[in-house]
């Protein structure tokens, strides 16, 4: 976990209070960054010679309904770019979490930093209803364009009808979480 501690220190030194908190214990260390500073931090994470996290692996959206927040977890990785055709044996990874209020969820887009973010952000918008300001192509990606609601929110109500197609919850087992 020493590597993550170093990244936390670098970020705190450079961005100060933009780093809300840092979670170093556990299997998945991450730093919580303020949403409005995220594009600057993202550029720094990608371009700083000590970090060079040039690959965005995944954006996982989370519904933190108990705290009335939505969040996105960005999993980043360093993939050596100067190795020629040698086998790459070392890497470093880092995760960033951006939290946003549930009633007005907006996170600045980082599609210009990592082009891979384009589809991941569209998926997070489609499934969780988080808006990504400045996204080049802000549309739903998996659901149809006229779909109502965001399926992965915890309070999502399954539609009983879509364009004349009946949907039923009749056979569904009661959700053990409720």
């Amino acid at each position: 976990m020493a590597v993550e501690e170093e990244v936390f220190d670098i970020l705190r030194e450079r961005f100060g209070d933009a780093v809300v908190s840092a979670e170093a214990s556990g299997a998945h260390p991450y730093a919580v960054i303020k949403a409005e500073r995220w594009p600057q931090v993202a550029l720094f994470l990608r371009d700083d010679p000590r970090l060079l996290l040039n690959m965005l692996r995944c954006i996982s959206s989370i519904d933190m309904i108990a705290e009335d927040k939505l969040a996105c977890v960005y999993d980043l990785m360093y993939l050596a770019d100067d190795c020629g055709d040698e086998l790459i044996t070392e890497t470093r990874e880092f995760a960033v979490r951006i939290e946003t209020p549930r009633d007005d969820p907006v996170i600045p887009s980082v599609a210009h930093v990592w082009p891979a973010a384009d589809w991941h952000e569209r998926e997070a918008y489609d499934m969780m209803g988080i808006h990504f300001s400045g996204h080049p192509d802000h549309r739903r990606i998996l659901c149809p364009d006229d779909w109502v609601g965001y399926p992965l929110r915890k309070d999502y109500v399954f539609p009983l009808e879509y364009h004349g197609i009946p949907g039923t919850t009749e056979y569904d087992l009661p959700n053990p979480r409720h």
Binding site: N54, L56, R57, L79, D81, W114, P115, A116
Partner: peptide, 8 residues
């Protein structure tokens, strides 16, 4: 190579 890494 660059595009492949950038697009994940």
């Amino acid at each position: 190579r660059e595009d492949a890494i950038a697009f994940g």
